[in-house]
Computed example of a mutant assay.
Amino acid sequence: MNTSLPDASATPLNAKPHYAILDGLRGVAALTVVAFHLCEAHATSHFDQLINHGYLAVDFFFLLSGYVIGYAYDDRWTRMTPGAFFKVRLIRLQPLVVLGMLIGAALFYFQTGPLWPGIGQTPVWLVLLVMAINATTLPVPLSLDVRGWHEMHPLDGPAWSLFYEYIGNILYALGVRKFSNAALAGLVALAGGGLVHYLLTSKGGDIVGGWSLEPEQLRVGFTRMLFPFFAGLLLRRLTRPGHISNAFGWCSLLLLAVLAWPRVGGPESLWLNGLYESASIILLFPLIVWLGASGQVKGVGSARVCRFLGGISYPLYITHYPLIYTYTAWVARHKVTLSQGLPMMVLTFGASVLLAYLSLKFYDEPVRRWLRQRFLSPASQPAQTP
């Protein structure tokens, strides 16, 4: 069976308008995630966490991914096989997963301290085994959790969302792409109902979690992926972009406001925060994506900013956390306060952005270029891959 993509001239993906603002928003969300994780090292609970809802960036990523996947591939299935789709997605996502695990393994032994006292005694062969398994994006069982945080990817925690991203892509390619709009709306409604139910009844009053193979965490992971990913697909199918002025600025401000909003309610009213997160994921994030798709980037400077943010967004997300582990271990080891740690926070933030840019230019782009040339025919290589 020929699993290569069809002739690009038949359905020219590279002729479609490119949503530069959505690229920029992805970068804004990724930068916010880094800042959230740095502040998290100084938090004592979810109630005093700065950039309190930064973890919702993951749910925004899922929705954005569904929207862009629908835009890029929904009209190509008469000439594209699931195998070809999976090949393109693997080339797009997998190289940086491998790099993230390599960086995670390289920094692992610098993270010993009160939070992870057993790191120094972890044999190298075990770290290498976990790295090799996680480099495939497959999770490791709790018996191989070398850190002790019950992570399915203990060397680079954020890879858990890529695991669910792949599941969403598989469900889309093998079945959901064939759904009528009514059937897709039914799936989104069911997933949305499950999301709201979880948020209003969960022990924490939030959607935090999804990174463990434990049953409750698996439920969180699927809940976080199913609604936004397929809601993004439905949003793409049912709406068309409008004409919004200054969309990037307004969307960035709205997104930052949602992610940085303080915790809603206290321990006695957890459901209030669940209601806030439900509204953010179900109403505000689709609005932001639609507004972003409705705007135009005007000016060379704005175009460069969106291109830069979009370029580093995925490398930043998947490579920054080993640096966060190291920073968090330093904070715990020396009992560093937020004000004391501010210079190191800024340095770690800058190092994360620099690492992402270097990873993009000297690893991800060259590797993906080689993989496309090696495994895809020239005519089947889309100029822009979501």
Rank of each mutant, 00 (worst) to 15 (best):
P322V: 08
W261Y: 14
G292C: 06
V297Q: 08
L284D: 09
S280N: 11
L270W: 06
Y325H: 11
L272Q: 14
L255M: 13
V289M: 02
I282T: 14
V331H: 00
V305W: 02
G266I: 06
S302R: 10
V331E: 01
L275K: 01
I312W: 07
I324E: 09
S280R: 05
P267R: 14
A332C: 00
S313C: 00
Y317R: 09
G249K: 04
I312E: 05
L316K: 03
G301P: 01
S313W: 04
L284F: 15
Q296C: 10
G266D: 12
K335Q: 15
L254K: 03
V297D: 06
R307D: 14
V258N: 02
R333D: 13
L291E: 07
G265V: 07
G265A: 04
P267H: 14
I312K: 05
Y276G: 07
L284K: 05
L259I: 10
L309I: 07
W290C: 06
A247Y: 01
L255F: 09
S313D: 05
G295W: 02
L309T: 01
Y325E: 09
Y325T: 09
R307W: 12
N273F: 10
Y276W: 15
A247N: 09
S269Q: 14
L253P: 01
N273M: 07
P315H: 02
F308Q: 04
G301F: 08
G274L: 01
S252H: 00
T319R: 01
V297W: 00
G311R: 11
C306S: 08
P322W: 06
E268V: 12
L275S: 07
L272F: 14
Q340A: 14
I324M: 13
W290Y: 03
L316N: 01
R304N: 13
R333C: 09
S280L: 11
L283Y: 10
